Each structure stands twice: as structure tokens, then as C-alpha cells.
Amino acid sequence: MASAPSFPVTRADALARLAQFVPQAGAAYAKGRNFDHGPGQHRAVSRLSAALRRRTISEAEVVRAVLAAHGPEAAASFISEVFWRTYWKGWLEQRPAIWTRYLAGRDAATARLARDPDLAARHRDALTGRTGIDAFDHWIGELAETGYLHNWARMQVASIWIFTLGLPWQLGAAHFLDQLRDGDPASNTLSWRWVAGLHTAGKAYLADAARITAMTDGRFHPRGLATQAIIPGDAPAPLAAPWRTTPAVDPGRPALLWITPEDAGLEQEAALARLPVRAVVACRSDAGTAADAAALDDALARAAAHWNAPVQWINSPAELAAAAQGAGTTQIVTGFVPVGLRADALPAIRAALSAQGCVLAEHLRAWDKAVWPHCRRGFFALKQEIPALLKDLA
């Protein structure tokens, strides 16, 4: 896998990468962001997505740095991309049934593989990069080797997967989520739905061979791409509903801080700066990838220094109550856990903690509180609010 500074997850590496990128975040980014120059050549984009996904660096500080260097007009293209990430998060948070529906579709498609040898063979060829479509096969290999793909390349892979290879989009989304260093349930699931024509009803993204050749400096000349998008069947998306409420953090009550890959930068949050933290833990069950393990190690060290508290690795959330009691508290504080597999596990975790006299409080960042209410419809509705949001968030 590519070296950590290339796609950083620790705070020091992310800040160093941000400093490198800021000079190119204005007009140069707007001009070059959609070109894919190949592995090791992704200099036109920030490559901060893995750190932003774990919030070892925050959207707010990235946006502030870019604004300070370029101003809102010259930096508009990059700032819009940062808000896209928050848009996906907020949109799914207000429609969690879409995540549940994706999981059911993934499981049904996986079951079909056992019954349909032709589908299984096409799926196997796609996963191993043996489709004969040069760009697709290369990108599948790059993803496996580096854990990263240029965002524009992700769109091409998804489109070819769905419309040329005729594979269920849920299987492609599952593969990306498993492989990507910056894999995020909201961005990944909803981006695949967008390509498939399910997010904006009837509006699919169809990969074009000539454009792929142009945007990759002539490295690829894919043949046999679909010329028609046959949109998968799907039920209409539910209307937006308020995101789930959580127990509030009691700022005067001693706490055990539980750091997860959903928010590994809690010591940067002003609202938690003076929280009386007695101990800090992370779960080995959350460190399923090298990137997550590195981010959590780094977060534990920073939290220990900030709160002058002991840190500990525990095996799983089943040990949280014992860790809290050992630290002399019954309040456990973590960052807000958005829709995804970790959130799916929360009701059982919260119930077990409550049975042992502990409360699990989640901290929702000011950025999310401000932006998510504008993520109920299409992205354009949010985009219109960006100038006002930037002013308020300053």
C-alpha cells in the first residue's frame, strides 16, 4: 500500500499534506482536478480524504486554510468538494433507510452469485481486473495496491461496473468500501447510487471512452463501453427526517473518552477541551485496517497529551463499562457515530452500557449541526448556502 504521507491518516502527516496542497487549492485545482495522471501522480488533488474521513483533520480547518490563501471565489471549486463530503453524510443521516436498503441489496446480490455462474464469472473478472477494458482493469489494480483512486476514476469504474459489465451496483460499492483507505459509508454508497441514476432519479453517469482517453493523458483507450444507461430498479428514496438524537455530553461530569475512526480528532473540539477526562480508550475491533490502527494510535497519543489522562486499548465495546468503572466514572463520551456499520451496532452497545449503569454520550460537531439541515434535497440547495455557512462557521 502507498506510504502513509501520500494518503495521510495521522494529524501531523495530514497537516503537512495540507500545507503542501494549499498553494494549488485555487485556480490550479479547478483546472486540473479531474485529470487522472496515474499512481503516484495525484498532485492536483488534496489527498486528504483519508484524514477527513477519520477527522484527524477537520473540514473547517481545511476550508479556513484554503480560504486564507485564495479567497472564496478562487477556492470555490475545492470548497465545493469539501461540502460534497458533508452533503453525502447529512443526506444519508436523514435517510438511514437507504443504508439498510443497500445492505439488503448487497446480501441479495451476493446470494445471486452462488446461483448464477455467468454473473459470478463476470464479478470475479471485475474484482481481479481481467475484463479486457484497459482503464477499468488498471484502476481495479491500483485500488488493490494503494487503497486509493482519483475521484474521477471512481466514477468511471462505477459506471463501467454497472452499465458495461452489468453487475449489481451494491457489489461494486461493497468492494470499494472494503478496499478504499478513505472508505466512508455515506460518500461511497450515495456516490454509487448517483452513478447508477438512483440519487437523482433517472439521471445516470455513463462513462465515455474518448473522455477517459483525454482525462488520462492518452494512457487508456477502452473499448466496448456501454452507450446506454439501463438504470437499476429501486424504490423511491424516503423523505428526509431528523437525524437521530443522542444523550448530550455533560461537560462537568468525569468521562471515559472512547475514540473511534468516526472521529479521531476530539481533542481539537473546543466544546470538549475542558471535559474532565479520566481515561481514553480505543477498541482493537475498530482497528480492522492499517489506516484505522494508525489513526487510532495517533489519536490516543494526542488525547493523552491534551487531557493528561491514561490511555488503553480494549478489545471491543463490550469492555467499555469496565474501563469506565475502572476510571471512576459512568459517562462515556465519543464522537457522533454516523450511519454505517458502527452505528448499526450502537443500540446493542448502548443497552449493554445502560444495564451496567453507564451512559454513552456522542459529540456532534458544529460543522455538521450547521450544514446537515441543508442536505435534505439535492446538492445545489446546499451549494446556495455555502457563502452564508462559511461566514457563520468562521
Rank of each mutant, 00 (worst) to 15 (best):
A2P: 01
S3I: 09
S6G: 09
F7R: 14
P8S: 03
T10S: 04
A14V: 04
A25K: 03
A30L: 08
N34L: 13
L52Q: 12
R54K: 09
T56M: 01
V63N: 09
A68P: 04
H70N: 11
P72Y: 07
E73N: 03
A74K: 14
V82S: 08
T86G: 10
R95Y: 12
R101V: 00
G105N: 11
G105D: 08
R106Y: 10
D107F: 00
T110N: 12
A111N: 06
R112I: 02
L113K: 07
T128V: 10
G129H: 08
T131H: 03
D134S: 11
G141D: 06
W161C: 15
F163G: 02
T164D: 13
L165H: 10
L167R: 09
F176K: 06
L177M: 10
W194I: 04
A210T: 13
R211P: 07
D217S: 15
G218C: 12
L225R: 08
A226S: 13
Q228F: 15
I231A: 10
G233K: 11
D234G: 13
L239M: 14
A240S: 15
W243C: 04
T245G: 11
T246V: 15
G265S: 14
G265H: 05
E267F: 06
E267D: 14
A270H: 01
L275A: 11
A290H: 00
A294V: 00
R302H: 12
A303H: 04
N308P: 07
Q312A: 01
P317K: 04
P317N: 06
E319L: 02
Q325L: 10
G326S: 05
G328W: 07
G328E: 08
T334A: 13
V339D: 05
G340E: 05
G340Q: 09
D344V: 15
R350G: 05
G357L: 09
V359W: 05
L360V: 07
H363G: 06
L364H: 06
R365Q: 09
W367C: 05
D368H: 10
V371R: 00
V371C: 08
V371Q: 04
H374E: 03
H374A: 04
H374V: 01
C375H: 00
A381S: 07
L382W: 11
Q384E: 13
K391S: 11
